[in-house]
């Protein structure tokens, strides 16, 4: 088994030309989208492939040390041009192909008019522990 991190972005990924923000959908379309996400996680739990996942709030700050004795440097919340992660899910699957297929399925969550939103997701393999047998 191999672990992968699935990253969803609030922004930073290219948007589709027909992109409609979620608050412009109908309430039923919002419900259908949320249900799809919930079913997806439930399915992975039932197949033993779900590890963990969290949603992140829609604000972020870039911080670095300002040097000894100085306050840290920040570029403030809501730096509008920066990439911003919306949430993550860790899956533990048999193969890279399986991870790709699942990411594709998650990206096809329904949006406005019931059409798949086809949002970009980032798929990153975890570094694995070193094997016991090395020869």
């Amino acid at each position: 088994m191999a672990k992968y991190l699935l990253l969803k972005h609030y922004r930073g990924a290219p948007t589709e030309p027909d992109f409609v923000p979620m608050d412009r959908w109908t309430p039923d379309e919002v419900d259908a989208h949320i249900q799809y996400m919930r079913d997806f996680a439930a399915k992975l739990e039932s197949t033993g492939e779900y590890v963990d996942g969290q949603a992140l709030a829609e604000e972020g700050t870039w911080v670095r040390s300002g040097g000894e004795g100085r306050p840290p440097v920040t570029d403030g919340p809501f730096a509008e041009t920066k990439d911003l992660i919306a949430g993550w899910m860790v899956i533990d699957v048999d193969s890279y192909e399986r991870a790709l297929a699942l990411a594709g399925e998650l990206s096809a969550a329904p949006g406005a008019g019931g059409r798949p939103i086809r949002e970009w997701l980032e798929l990153r393999p975890f570094m694995s522990p070193p094997p016991t047998v090395t020869e």
Partner: peptide, 13 residues
């Protein structure tokens, strides 16, 4: 989000 959608849902779709 549902409240926002209820008020202007579908306007742009």
């Amino acid at each position: 989000t549902r409240q926002a959608a209820r008020l202007h849902g579908g306007q742009l779709t």
